[in-house]
Design a protein around this nucleic acid. Structure first.
Lengths: 180, 180
DNA sequence: CCGTTTGGCTAACGTCAATAGCCAACGTTG
DNA sequence: CAACGTTGGCTATTGACGTTAGCCAAACGG
């Protein structure tokens, strides 16, 4: 239901009606709307983490990156409502939520090990990859890409660009434009 | 006020109280909550567009990209509430909103002209750049980066990676990992 | 077979967006 | 100056929603 209507507009009244039940009866199964949101968020993080993890097994290097990226995007497109709560951070002290998030990020970290990045270099690469994926998928699912140009192709291009950047991740910083 | 509390939780009651006025009096100055959201969104898009446009004047190539990126991120960090409605697409038929969005995207397109990309190549690059910026800023402002590693550095790294990728944007696609 | 748990219900309250209708201050204009 | 329309506030009310309290019947376990 979150995927159909969006979590923000998912009302307890509507949920009760769909279940053929009166609104207060829901409180026998959930503690609050916020609690429901947390549950959905937790479920979504787990599912997305599993999806990208499954895509990465048996692959490494740029192969794994492409596979994981497509798994990420496909899951997000198929579950837009769930997706947009995958990035809401855990409430302070919610260790279960924190751990779920961390294990999903760990999948990305593992995939990047092929590039032999260490310490901050690795953190930077993980943040970059997460930014890429989230930014593209977020813009796409909210309808931010107005033009009719092929979105699949743009995504492929984006990921390819990332692998190219990874190949030069530890090159010395140089702001000059290498092409002219 | 949107930046302090977030647009989602900005309530008309609270707004009225801050203005020292009763809630229904607000309707003499706005049509609805949705209308207010649209106004804020429109203002935000215009402001962000101007910020990145200002940053890009007099620069070109990767210089312009870095300047624009920092202007984008800084504006978003300083105006988090406004930022997160900059990416909400215009309602169908809202040409004013569409035009505002388009002119902001046009700034990006102009900056990328130095890379001599044409047609779909250009669209792909614009989408990639928007994804990068939005993804990073979105994750950062919502607290998605848990580790204490330097976020400024990660951003710098991300943008540098993009310029590297741009230098090879039109290289033939090749999924093999060039480093091993 | 009796007690407890489970899962529904009605009634009620507070908050919020929104509408209707009233009224005072003010400026314009004949 | 006086009549008048506009502006911008107000109270009262409604409807949707989240939430709590308290009641009750069916199911289930000892």
């Amino acid at each position: 239901m979150a995927d159909e209507v969006g979590l923000n507009t998912l009302t307890l009244a509507a949920l009760a009606e769909r279940l053929g039940v009166k609104q207060p009866s829901l409180y026998k199964h959930l503690d609050s709307l916020a609690g429901l949101h947390r549950s959905v968020s937790l479920l979504a993080k787990r599912e997305l983490g599993e999806a990208i993890s499954r895509a990465a097994v048996g692959r490494s290097g740029s192969d794994a990156i492409f596979a994981m990226s497509h798994a990420y995007r496909n899951w997000a497109i198929q579950h837009p409502g769930r997706y947009d709560v995958t990035q809401t951070p855990a409430s302070p002290g919610d260790t279960e939520d924190e751990n779920t998030m961390m294990s999903a990020v760990q999948v990305i970290a593992d995939v990047l090990t092929a590039y032999r990045l260490e310490g901050d270099d690795s953190v930077d690469a993980i943040r970059a990859f997460r930014s890429l994926l989230h930014g593209f998928v977020s813009l796409e699912t909210t309808g931010g890409f107005a033009l009719t140009a092929d979105i699949d192709r743009s995504f492929e291009r984006l990921i390819r660009g990332f692998t190219v950047a990874l190949d030069h991740w530890t090159d010395p910083a140089d702001r000059s434009d290498s092409r002219d």
